[in-house]
């Protein structure tokens, strides 16, 4: 029988739909009987949503600036070579 600890091990696979049919049914049966595990799955889902909502795209402006400068340098060099050859 699936215990709470076993469910915690495969919780992400359950949430992502990566479990086989048997395991999936076992998890669903367990969840029907176990409030703690329902809370666990619910809160784990909420954590995943939080990660998605979190502005992971926060940009390091200094790094962007350094990269921009290097790109500009390279593009300028390419342009001046092109102008020289014309």
């Amino acid at each position: 029988m699936l215990m709470c600890r076993d469910l915690a091990r495969i919780a992400s696979d359950y949430i992502d739909g990566e479990l086989g049919t048997m395991d999936r049914v076992s998890v669903k049966m367990h969840l029907l009987m176990c409030g703690h595990c329902r809370t666990f799955i619910g809160n784990l889902r909420a954590s995943i949503d939080l990660m998605k909502a979190h502005s992971s795209q926060q940009v390091d402006e200094e790094l962007v600036h350094r990269i921009d400068s290097r790109i500009k340098e390279r593009l300028d060099a390419q342009r001046s070579r092109k102008n020289d050859s014309e």
């Binding site: 215990m3 709470c4 600890r5 666990f40 619910g42 909420a46 939080l50 909502a53």
Partner: peptide, 28 residues
């Protein structure tokens, strides 16, 4: 840390706390 919250019989010894009802957006 999570593994330590289960008893020997595989059930929760320290179960998860409050159920989170707020949406991710509200939490953020």
């Amino acid at each position: 840390e999570l593994a330590d919250r289960f008893a020997h019989n595989g059930r929760w010894a320290t179960p998860p706390g409050l159920k989170s009802n707020e949406s991710a957006q509200a939490l953020m």
